[in-house]
Simulated assay, not measured.
Amino acid sequence: MKDFDGKIALVTGTTGIGLATARRLAAGGAAIIACGIDRAANAAMTAELDSSGAGALVMAVDVSVPDQVRDAIAAGVERFGGLDIIVNSAAVHPYGTAVSTDFDTWNQAMSVNVGSIYLTAHFGIPEMMKRGG
């Protein structure tokens, strides 16, 4: 038995830490619901996880948009039957100072890097509780 057999994991971000985490969870037997804005990275993750035999649903999702997060979780729950694990690894990295960074850039970074954690918890934890998590 693998350490994540029968588990369903939501992973935000399809590059870097998100990709590495999805690989590890899938290797451990988890089904993967992945959300990312990079369509090329999404396609690469889909191809990799499909070729490994892992159950995967990789979607183009802006994790700072509530309806998109809600719909992605609902699609994953519909496909795999629930949710057990949430890994928040999506992030944007604007570089600058408080003086040089405009408010819209700062706000987008906060919405993705912090707001997405709230959104995945808001929509995901009720699904996790249904499975006893």
Rank of each mutant, 00 (worst) to 15 (best):
E48S: 03
E48F: 01
A34P: 00
L57F: 04
D102N: 12
G36I: 02
N113G: 01
D38L: 03
L25R: 10
Q108K: 15
C35L: 11
G55P: 05
I32Y: 01
E48P: 07
R39Q: 11
T105P: 09
I117S: 11
H93D: 04
S116I: 14
S51F: 01
V63G: 08
N113L: 02
A90D: 08
I73T: 14
D71F: 09
S51I: 08
L19E: 15
V58Q: 09
S89P: 06
A54R: 00
Y95T: 11
R24D: 04
D71S: 15
A91R: 03
N113C: 07
A74D: 14
A98M: 14
S64G: 15
F80P: 11
G18Q: 05
A27T: 06
M45G: 03
I86W: 08
L49I: 09
G55N: 14
N88F: 03
L49E: 10
Q108E: 11
R70Q: 15
S52L: 06
V99G: 00
D71W: 02
S51E: 01
Q68C: 12
I32G: 05
A22L: 00
F103D: 14
G115P: 06
A43P: 01
A44M: 04
A91H: 06
D67C: 02
V87H: 03
A27G: 14
T105L: 15
W106Q: 04
L19F: 15
V114A: 08
A54I: 11
A91N: 05
T105Y: 04
V65N: 15
V114W: 03
A60P: 15
A34Q: 00
V58M: 14
A90V: 02
Y118Q: 01
G29H: 04
H122G: 04
P66H: 13
G81A: 10
A56E: 06
M59H: 14
L119I: 14
A75W: 00
V112R: 07
I117N: 03
G96R: 04
D67G: 09
A72L: 09
L19C: 09
G81K: 02
P94Q: 07
S100H: 00
N42D: 02
D50P: 02
Y118H: 12
P94N: 07
F80W: 07
D71M: 05
G55V: 01
M110S: 00
V87R: 00
Q68E: 15
V61K: 06
V99H: 06
V77Q: 14
D104F: 09
A31L: 02
A20L: 07
A91D: 07
L119E: 04
I33R: 08
A54Q: 02
G55Q: 15
I33M: 13
A72S: 11
G115F: 13
L57N: 10
D104P: 09
A22R: 03
V114M: 07
D71I: 06
T120I: 00
A34S: 07
I32C: 12
S111M: 11
I86R: 05
L25I: 01
A109T: 13
D104A: 13
A54K: 02
M59A: 12
Q108F: 13
T101N: 05
A44R: 14
G36T: 10
A75Y: 05
L49D: 08
V61M: 03
G28A: 04
S52Q: 12
T120M: 01
P66F: 08
S100E: 13
F103S: 10
I73R: 13
I117F: 04
D62S: 08
D38P: 00
I32E: 05
I85K: 15
G82S: 06
Y118V: 13
